[in-house]
């Protein structure tokens, strides 16, 4: 299994480099591990079947994340909020099985934060997921989303302000 054409990298190299980031990004959009795995596989299959190979691993990385992000948001549109509800139930049942009270609180915190990120408008959620879960910098996010770095900076800030408001409502506080 290798990429056709004259490229200075192998399919396996791209896979090992991109997969961990891709799975995190996709999972935090669809919030269903089974679906995230399928969507990652689909993104890599599309990459493998591309007729014209990309010139570098980093270009492949941007391409794959862009495709996977679009696939994930399309999946979300199709599934509505069903997958989120299922994920929440799974996590809640998992947290009940945790041994200590501290673990329970941590799991609860994770769910609350994920819900808050999930409730952000798509354009803010995209940058935040790519930045915090995908661990990408502004330049990389700008390339993936086809926007300027300054726009990424603005969106990240607005996403944080919105997140702050959402997390301050109710019992949860980040401090």
């Amino acid at each position: 299994m290798d990429i056709e054409g004259n490229v200075p990298y192998t399919f396996r190299e791209v896979y090992d480099d991109v997969f961990p980031v891709l799975l995190k990004v996709v999972f935090h959009i669809v919030r269903d591990m089974g679906a995230a795995e399928d969507l990652c596989q689909e993104a890599f299959l599309r990459y493998y079947n591309k007729r014209i190979p990309l010139p570098s691993v980093s270009e492949s990385r941007y391409w794959l994340i862009r495709v996977a992000k679009n696939l994930s948001f399309n999946y979300r549109k199709r599934k509505g909020r069903e997958s989120v509800a299922v994920d929440r139930i799974k996590l809640e049942s998992k947290s009940v099985q945790s041994d200590s009270q501290e673990d329970l609180i941590r799991e609860e915190d994770k769910i609350v934060i994920r819900d808050a990120v999930d409730s952000l408008p798509v354009k803010y959620r995209s940058v935040l997921v790519l930045k915090e879960y995908g661990e990408l910098n502004y330049k990389e996010i700008a390339k993936i989303l086809h926007i300027s770095e300054n726009n990424v900076k603005i969106r990240v800030h607005r996403a944080r302000v919105l997140l702050e408001k959402k997390l301050s409502i109710g019992d949860f506080h980040v401090f």
């Binding site: 997969f19 961990p20 799975l23 995190k24 999972f27 935090h28 591990m33 915190d109 994770k110 769910i111 934060i113 994920r114 990120v117 935040l128 915090e132 879960y133 661990e135 944080r160 997140l163 702050e164 997390l167 980040v174 401090f175």
Partner: peptide, 15 residues
């Protein structure tokens, strides 16, 4: 912002 960033990252999954 630092704490918020850490909390969001902490809520991520391990692959």
């Amino acid at each position: 912002y630092g704490i918020l960033t850490e909390k969001v990252k902490f809520s991520g999954v391990d692959t």
